[in-house]
Design a protein around this nucleic acid. Structure first.
Lengths: 207, 207
DNA sequence: TAAATTTGTATAACATGTTATAATTGTCAA
DNA sequence: TTGACAATTATAACATGTTATACAAATTTA
């Protein structure tokens, strides 16, 4: 990595740190580009050079937090694919809950922006992840083999994204959010579950 | 109604008409307050006097369209409460589908705003509506009497609002939106359905 | 080392939502 | 009819996201 690239990364980091600090300490209303540049010790132009827009600064915070990169959180210790899906939901919840208001604020900042592309990126990632789980569950004979894997996976992913969206809007906290996701996932899976996974789902349902 | 009040209502209508026309003909990006005032033939101040903010102008469009006042759409011809719930979803879909892009745009304009109160108003209304249906379904013995009516009703309402939110974000159209709502509702109701409603729900599920 | 290139800075500017202010107009009540 | 009041207008202003421009500094490359 060249000197230039190093300096860039440092500036990126300074800006992200400043943004996070402002949001935490003074609230997102105070996060203006001028103030951000000021606190980060760079010029107003620099965040635009390095991120593109205010929304993309916020998106970078989310990415760093790994909220969108849930792969890393997935538990390996479950034998059922369905079980792993729920574990990853639990891990996500536990992770976000430590700093609920912050994540919620940042998530909303990204999702409520008019930059459609960024939103769509988030959607696609999580839906592909869901579809992967469903495909695995079918291969595993945890759910009926006659259902359309991609379609059902998409539905599961959309439930996740939808309810996350409502969490972002501040209507409820991460605990209640996870409960609604869990409940709707259980219900959906139960409509296609085989004997192998039914018991697990019933347990999961009773939370 | 006094002259003054009449003039006010006329101005409100002129502004709403102008807003709808701009959105339809030129897209919501062109809907600036200055241009809106211009097209409506009023001063820049007037929309603020009569509505309060840009978001509230959009909200008024939604209200006029009855998207939030779904009560009027509810079919009376079903004997099951659960059946009526799904009918009202169908009616809503049919209504919105006639002008999908327009409603979607306006809905998003309202929901993505930072005016939390307005969002919450929309949420509360639909959730109360859902809770009413669920209470009725319990009274009707269509679903198990040992479940918590308010809690389950809220869950149903949240599924609706969440998925509507994703529709608003432009991820899918009203047809797919309704399909996801229907599917998730069926799955949820099936977990608590009695013999009386199970068959209906299975039919509904197969779309 | 010196020119070329990239990156950041300073400053101004623009569009837009929103608010302030003062003047004007229309309505209503006496 | 006329004075009081309310609503509307015209105009300017402010904050904020974003872009433009000209210049300076750092870094790479020849």
């Amino acid at each position: 990595m060249s000197q230039r690239e190093i300096a860039k990364q440092e500036n990126r980091q300074k800006i992200k740190d400043a943004a996070a600090n402002i949001i935490r300490r003074e609230g997102i209303e105070k996060l203006t580009m001028r103030y951000l540049a000021d606190i980060a010790g760079v010029s107003l132009r620099t965040p635009y050079n390095l991120f593109g827009s205010k929304t993309e600064v916020l998106f970078a915070l989310l990415e760093d937090a790994g909220v969108l990169l849930t792969q890393g959180l997935i538990s390996q210790s479950e034998d059922l694919a369905v079980g792993r899906l729920f574990s990853s939901l639990n891990a996500m919840e536990a992770h976000v809950r430590k700093d609920d208001e912050f994540y919620q604020t940042v998530y909303w900042g990204v999702m409520a922006s008019d930059q459609v592309e960024i939103r769509r990126t988030g959607y696609e990632r999580l839906i592909e992840l869901s579809q992967g789980f469903v495909a695995e569950a079918i291969a595993n004979k945890e759910i009926n083999s006659d259902i359309n894997s991609d379609e059902f996976g998409k539905h599961i992913g959309i439930l996740l994204m939808s309810i996350l969206g409502m969490w972002g809007s501040g209507y409820f906290g991460s605990k209640e959010c996870a409960a609604h996701i869990r409940r709707s996932w259980c219900a959906s899976f139960l409509t296609v579950a085989t004997r192998k996974s039914k018991q697990h789902l019933m347990n999961e349902m009773s939370h």
